[in-house]
Design a protein around this nucleic acid. Sequence first.
DNA 1: TAGATTGTTAATCGATTAACAATC
DNA 2: TAGATTGTTAATCGATTAACAATC
Lengths: 228, 228
Amino acid sequence: MTDPSVSERTAAETATVDLPLSEGDRLSLGVAARLSRYLQVLIQARKMGRETISSQELAEYTHINSTQIRRDLSGFGKFGKRGVGYRVESLVSEIRKILHTSGQHNIALFGAGNLGQAIASSDIFADHGFRIVSIFDADPEVVGKEFGGVPVRSLTDLEQVVREDEVVVGVLAVPAQAAQQVADQLVEAGVKIIFNYSEQLLQVPPEVTVHTSSPAVDLLYALYFYLA
Amino acid sequence: MTDPSVSERTAAETATVDLPLSEGDRLSLGVAARLSRYLQVLIQARKMGRETISSQELAEYTHINSTQIRRDLSGFGKFGKRGVGYRVESLVSEIRKILHTSGQHNIALFGAGNLGQAIASSDIFADHGFRIVSIFDADPEVVGKEFGGVPVRSLTDLEQVVREDEVVVGVLAVPAQAAQQVADQLVEAGVKIIFNYSEQLLQVPPEVTVHTSSPAVDLLYALYFYLA
DNA sequence: TAGATTGTTAATCGATTAACAATC
DNA sequence: TAGATTGTTAATCGATTAACAATC
């Protein structure tokens, strides 16, 4: 609807439609997904001390065509310098503004097993502005411990933590057979985004978004192009 | 190029072009990605004892439009039954045939820390026909141990294992600062697909595919639609 | 039969790409 | 200046969707 590339328009229509996206507009699924991926690379490039980056380099790391990257970005402003590229630091903040994710967001982690501990002690979420406020585990033995500086609590505290710490995302690193029950409790507590690392297919109301992580599926996909 | 939906064709062209994809054709990136995701849901549905599934149900779990699912599948044959849906078991094997991934594929895992152990002891890869033949770790303390029945070996054995066990994928669950070095060794050994769980941006030759896992990016994306 | 769901068409929308002028 | 890279156009290709006949 706000795509400037649509052909077969009258001149009059084009004049109004080809304007850049105004702040209030909602991004298309594709644009939001791509901007998120640019951000991933930019954050890491910044860590490595890079000051500028070209659309060509972004293309290599994201596997997204460089023309499309420039096109995506130029829809929101002139962020680059011809002959130079984009300033990493400023592009990070521009994309965060566009995605409305400049702030800090709180998440709750479920499961203090190997995967839960790996997540808690990595800074993969922290780098993108997510703070793990609590780890929940069903095992009384681990409740009270800490991983990556985050305390492990009992599932009975779930609703209170969600409310008091304004948790917007629940990350499930629990066994498949426990996943649905935790999801139900998260839905009950009002959480609208569930990130599922278990293999369980989760049943949730339509207003709740479930993202199921699927490394094996990603592998199958990569493998196809290797085999074909 | 083999898309049956392209309009504006002459009748004569249509007659030859609208045929289903022949076995030798290479799938488009999009189709291959979607088929992989159908497979993920089907495998899990089968685990749960489901015998049939409708395009509508597949749509709910994959967030892919149900018409597109039917369209994707009907390009390869008439797999469904009107009024009933698709037989889970047979659809699994049909999609595996299309993706050329009916066989067993060997992978090597790098890093025996929390994440490595979590991967080794889950059956997320096994469910999709991937076998972890070896875990590699730089720490001599853990070399010789086993996780999920898979032995931990020294990185010096890398080339030999890749050759003898026909490893096609390397999965990196190592700290960011160790990732590039392992990637270099994998490239050296001839591995063409690297699955990167570290945050490191990897430099590899063009014939090697790197997939970098990015849970935080997926979260940012989900969050955008929650906030907007 | 009645209800459900596939397979398919037709129309529109968004993604992709090559090409290149503008400009740092 | 010369080289590099953005911003933008124009054309094509693939994805998306509604709708519905076919049929289980």
